[in-house]
């Protein structure tokens, strides 16, 4: 939805990016449907997702992965409690933080336990979404 709105405003580069994204939407279900192995489906889907996400900033997959973050960190990452806000942080900052929580390099009570639930590719998608989408709806 966001992309369609953006498309009307943006130039041909966005058009190309949207086409790429739409291709993903068509390709992924086909991969999911006809892949013969249960879990390889997820891996196959992830491989398709990554380059697209880098091109357009946020994907439906990035959105679904990121929607739970706000339960503890506030809507769009604007925290009203003691949890840190991530609103206004760059995708790079968020990605580094999540990877460090995951590895244990950065201290946490509960965040490390969450970060371990995501692959590095998924963390990339989350960082892209959380580091950009909130800014657009400012």
């Amino acid at each position: 939805m966001l992309f369609i709105i953006t498309l009307n405003k943006e130039d041909n580069i966005m058009r190309a990016k949207l086409r790429l994204w739409l291709t993903f939407c068509v390709v992924t279900p086909v991969l999911l449907l006809f892949s013969n192995t249960g879990m390889a489906e997820q891996a196959a889907a992830t491989k398709v997702v990554k380059p697209v996400s880098k091109a357009v900033g946020a994907t439906p997959r990035g959105q679904v992965l990121s929607l739970s973050c706000s339960s503890c960190h506030g809507t769009d990452g604007k925290s009203v409690g003691i949890m840190p806000s991530f609103y206004g942080k760059t995708p790079q900052y968020i990605e580094t933080a999540l990877l460090e929580f995951k590895s244990g390099k950065r201290y946490s009570t509960v965040m490390g336990r969450h970060a371990k639930g995501y692959s590095d590719d998924e963390i990339h998608l989350i960082a892209q979404y959380c580091g950009t989408v909130g800014h657009k709806t400012k």
């Binding site: 939407c25 999911l32 439906p60």
Partner: peptide, 11 residues
């Protein structure tokens, strides 16, 4: 469009 595979969290 096809919905993205779900990702769910609990704390």
């Amino acid at each position: 469009k096809v919905p993205a595979p779900p990702s769910l969290v609990n704390t």
